[in-house]
């Protein structure tokens, strides 16, 4: 039996993926800043946003951003908690909150993107 939930395994896959998604996010964030914030009028008016939302490229861009961003953020959060010794119940609760909130907000974001 594993005494501490989440401490099983080496954590190497999430360590590697944290770096890969991190590098990907740097690229995506630069694109995001240029598209959304370099020109606020084209970035933030309803018509311009909807126009982008109807293009497959930007749909894929946003889906990638939400998926990779949430995973990177929540994997990092879990990585911080993993550094501390927790009672199994506490660890399981925190892990559950991270997984459930991740799924919930991923669905919320994907729903927004795919409603256009």
């Amino acid at each position: 039996m594993y005494k501490h939930t989440g401490s099983r395994g080496s954590g190497a896959p999430s360590w590697v993926l944290q770096r890969i998604t991190g590098l990907l996010l740097v690229v995506v964030v630069i694109g995001h800043y240029f598209v959304m914030h370099a020109n606020p009028a084209s970035g933030h008016t309803y018509a311009a946003v909807l126009d982008r939302m109807h293009q497959p490229f930007w749909k894929m861009f946003d889906l990638t951003f939400i998926t990779v961003g949430l995973w990177h953020g929540l994997n990092g959060t879990w990585g911080i908690f993993r550094d501390y010794k927790m009672k199994p119940a506490v660890s399981l609760t925190i892990y559950g909150i991270i997984i459930l909130s991740g799924i919930a907000f991923w669905v919320l974001g994907v729903n927004t993107i795919l409603s256009f």
């Binding site: 008016t45 309803y46 018509a47 946003v49 909807l50 939302m53 939400i66 961003g69 949430l70 953020g73 929540l74 990092g76 959060t77 911080i80 909130s101 907000f105 919320l108 974001g109 729903n111 927004t112 409603s115 256009f116």
Partner: peptide, 27 residues
């Protein structure tokens, strides 16, 4: 900063659900 940005992505995803409620809500 990582925890802050993670909190922000939640806020960001929630805030942009207004897109589905039409131009008035979004503007």
């Amino acid at each position: 900063t990582g925890l802050g940005l993670t909190a922000y992505i939640f806020v960001h995803i929630y805030a942009l659900t207004s897109l589905t409620q039409g131009p008035q809500a979004f503007d």
